[in-house]
Structure formats: C-alpha cells, structure tokens
Simulated assay, not measured.
Amino acid sequence: MPTGVHLRDVRKQLFDAAGRVLLRDGPNGLTSRAVTTEADVAKGVLHRHFADFDDFLADLVRDRITRLADQAALLHAAAGTRTVVANIVDALTEFFDPVTVALASLIFFRDELRARLRRTAGGLPLLVEAGEMLTTYLSAEREQGRIAADAEAESLSLSLIGAAHLLFAGRRRNTRPAPEELTKLAGTVLADVLQRRLL
C-alpha cells in the first residue's frame, strides 16, 4: 500500500477515534492511550505519525478547520435565499456539533495546543474560522440589501459565535439547544440590522 494512502487512512482512523473519545469521555478523557485504544491500534502508531500528542491534536483541529471550508462555501451560496436568521441557525447548528464544542474546550484549556494553533490575528482556533465564515456570509447579505448597509458584519459574527458557543457549551455533554433557542439568539443579535433595512 502506498505510504501516502496509508498515512491518510491512519490519520482518519485516529481522528475518528479521538472524536468518539471526546463524545464519550470529554476533553479530560482524551489521551494518546485512549485514542489508540479506541482506534484499536498499537500505542506507537500515533507517535510514528505525529511528533507528540499535541502535534496530533493540532492536526485534528486543522482537519476540522479544513472541513469548515466546505460549510463556508455552502453558507455563502445561501446568501439571498430563505431568511438570514434561518441560514445563520443552520450554520451554527452544523458548526457546533458535539465534537467541535469539545475541541473548543480542549483548545482553551491546553496552552501548548493553543500555542501551536495560534494565528497572528489571535483568537481561539476553530471559533475564529467560524467567525470568518459568518462575516463572509453577512457581508454577502449586506451586498444584497437583506441587512442594513452599515451593518458591521465582523462584529455581528463575533456576537453570534460567542453567544452560540456559550449556548452549546453550557449543555450537558452531547446535547444541543432547541432550534427555537438558536432562532431567538440569531434574531436578537441581528434584529437591529434586519429592522433598519426596512426603514
């Protein structure tokens, strides 16, 4: 089997296992031994492919960030369709899946992991990229006249991501807020720019 294919397979196997451990045991239960046991591979497999456990975790987060690009493209394409609030609710629901919520906690509490992922712009990785996704989307809606022309897309995105993160992270593990809660949240954050558009 070619090395590249093998590496991709091993990475996916380990990343999938890490997600299952996070969902079952939470960030505190995520150890290299827990991951390799869950993946049903020898402990040395992880260390053959990654410099250390934080290197593995950094790649796990980067993998989630890469997958976010697909969601961002779909959200941008949704500009001008349905309602702004409905599009935002769907994006927040998809982004804040239980694994992403657990990873955000992990990044927050592991200094070494955060340092490896830190971008020059600062902010918490994953949440920064989610904010950029919403900023791009809201900018497109502003160009189409569906939110106020002077709406600050970046500020609105920060408010939406921060509030949604608190809403999702404040739940019992693996539970999600009701769609009505997210609709209320998005509607409240966007109320002013949606109403002023109609004046």
Rank of each mutant, 00 (worst) to 15 (best):
G4I: 15
L7M: 12
R8P: 07
R8N: 12
R8F: 06
R8G: 09
D9F: 04
V10A: 15
Q13E: 06
L14T: 03
L14H: 02
F15C: 03
D16M: 10
G19K: 05
G19V: 06
R20E: 13
L23F: 02
N28G: 15
G29T: 09
L30Q: 04
L30F: 09
V35Y: 01
V35T: 02
T37V: 06
D40A: 11
A42H: 03
A42P: 00
K43S: 08
G44Q: 10
G44I: 04
L46F: 02
L46T: 01
H47L: 14
R48L: 10
R48F: 04
H49D: 11
F50C: 11
A51P: 03
D54M: 01
D54S: 00
D55N: 02
L57Q: 06
L60P: 00
V61M: 02
V61L: 03
V61W: 06
D63I: 00
I65P: 00
T66V: 08
R67M: 05
Q71T: 07
Q71H: 11
A73K: 08
L74S: 13
L75A: 05
A79G: 03
G80A: 14
T81F: 01
R82K: 07
T83K: 01
V84E: 09
V85M: 07
A86W: 06
N87S: 14
N87C: 12
N87Q: 08
I88G: 07
V89F: 05
D90H: 15
D90F: 14
L92D: 05
T93N: 01
F95M: 08
F96L: 01
F96N: 01
T100K: 15
V101G: 08
A102L: 03
A102R: 03
A104C: 14
A104Q: 06
I107Y: 03
F108H: 12
E112G: 13
R114V: 07
A115F: 12
R116M: 02
L117K: 00
R118W: 01
R118D: 07
A121M: 09
L127Y: 00
V128T: 15
V128G: 11
V128E: 11
E129A: 08
A130E: 03
G131S: 07
M133I: 00
L134Y: 00
T135G: 10
Y137K: 12
L138H: 11
L138M: 12
R142C: 08
G145K: 09
D150M: 11
A151C: 10
E152M: 09
A153G: 08
S155K: 12
L156C: 08
A163E: 04
A163G: 10
A163V: 02
L166Y: 13
L167Q: 15
L167R: 08
A169I: 04
A169M: 08
T175S: 14
R176A: 13
A178F: 15
A178I: 12
P179R: 11
P179D: 09
P179W: 14
E180I: 13
E181L: 13
E181C: 05
L185Q: 05
A186N: 06
G187W: 05
V189M: 04
L190T: 06
L190I: 06
D192I: 11
V193Q: 04
R196Q: 11
R197C: 09
